[in-house]
Design a protein around this nucleic acid. Structure first.
Length: 298
DNA sequence: CGCCAGGCTAGCG
DNA sequence: CGCTAGCATGGC
């Protein structure tokens, strides 16, 4: 077991652990000192990544961690501490909605999620409330994942594709996955048989989005989530219900006939390269109701 | 009770 | 191709 702290004082744009892990991007961290969204500061979270059991919490400019081995590089990668947030903010457009979201959520970073659990998480996300998605992924981890001992606590890893491929559809329905159960199972079996989603990483963005729809339960929107939250396509803008609402009210010129065309328009509206950052700030603001949309029709 | 949630698939025309 | 009915489950 090792302990450490990462000093984030000099990190451009800062860092906010709670916003980063409770904004519906990653469903792979479990909050251990309370339920998700209960608003407590100094929250503590656990996950397993790179085979390491990790527990982290934030106190001011320090990100404290305890892990089964040195987890510094893993944490920096998972939480995108390599992103220059100030530069990214500077590429996003000035508009009332985005300005207020950035002002309120300064330090919220995108995540760089392990791709298989990201894929499964967002297959499960279809027609599902964010709060329930967290519980579903935790159920999958407890039912099929490895148990990692960290001191006197046990952390459940998200199952590998091989592990999840051994489940049955009936079991997954028992966990409350509903009609997504066969999607999850078929996708896990595809990945387990060697069809790796990482292959999308070598493609140009729109080709990559098309590529991931090969998996059962993955359409354009879920594909965009995987590209954005796992595969470093920061220009990806998942067109979910909240973003579509924002497009209608705030960026009506971006509303087109097809997903692909609306995607191009909103990506350009959000400054191109880091458009996915804008998407995530707007998504969190509208979903939580933290910010009343200045352009919304009442 | 009805409605809706980070949509997708299959099966039409 | 584009379009849409149907889909599980739980919380309000």
């Amino acid at each position: 077991m090792e302990n450490g702290a990462i000093d984030m004082q000099s990190l451009p744009g800062g860092f906010n652990l709670r916003l980063t892990l409770e904004s519906g991007q990653s469903y792979g961290w479990r909050r251990v000192d309370g339920e998700m969204f209960d608003g407590l500061d100094g929250a503590t979270y656990e996950t397993v990544a790179d085979g390491l059991g990790i527990r982290i919490s934030q106190e001011g400019d320090d990100l404290h961690w305890r892990a089964t081995d040195d987890a510094t590089e893993t944490i920096e990668r998972l939480l995108r501490l390599d992103d220059d947030l100030e530069h990214i903010y500077s590429t996003l457009p000035d508009d009332p909605l985005l300005d207020r979201a950035i002002g309120r959520y300064r330090g919220m970073r995108l995540v760089r999620e392990p791709v298989f659990r990201c894929l499964i998480s967002f297959i499960c996300s279809a027609q599902m409330r964010v709060e329930r998605i967290y519980r579903m992924q935790r159920s999958l981890a407890e039912a099929y994942g490895d148990e990692i001992a960290l001191g006197d606590v046990t952390i459940h890893a998200f199952p590998s594709a091989d592990q999840l491929a051994e489940a049955t559809e009936a079991e997954l329905r028992e966990l409350g996955l509903g009609y997504r159960a066969p999607y999850v199972l078929d996708t896990a079996r595809m990945v387990a048989s060697g069809d790796a989603p990482q292959a999308a990483g070598n493609l140009e963005y729109e080709s990559a989005r098309e590529y991931l729809t090969r998996y059962i339960g993955v359409g354009e929107k879920v594909s965009d989530c995987v590209l954005l939250f796992s595969l470093d396509f920061l220009e990806a803008v998942p067109l979910d219900t909240w973003i579509r609402t924002a497009i209608e009210s705030n960026y009506p010129g971006c509303d087109r006939d097809t997903y692909a065309e609306t995607s191009r328009a909103i990506r350009q509206q959000f400054g191109g390269t880091y458009a996915g950052y804008a998407q995530t700030y707007v998504f969190h603001a509208l979903r939580t109701g933290d910010i009343s949309n200045p352009e919304a029709r009442t």
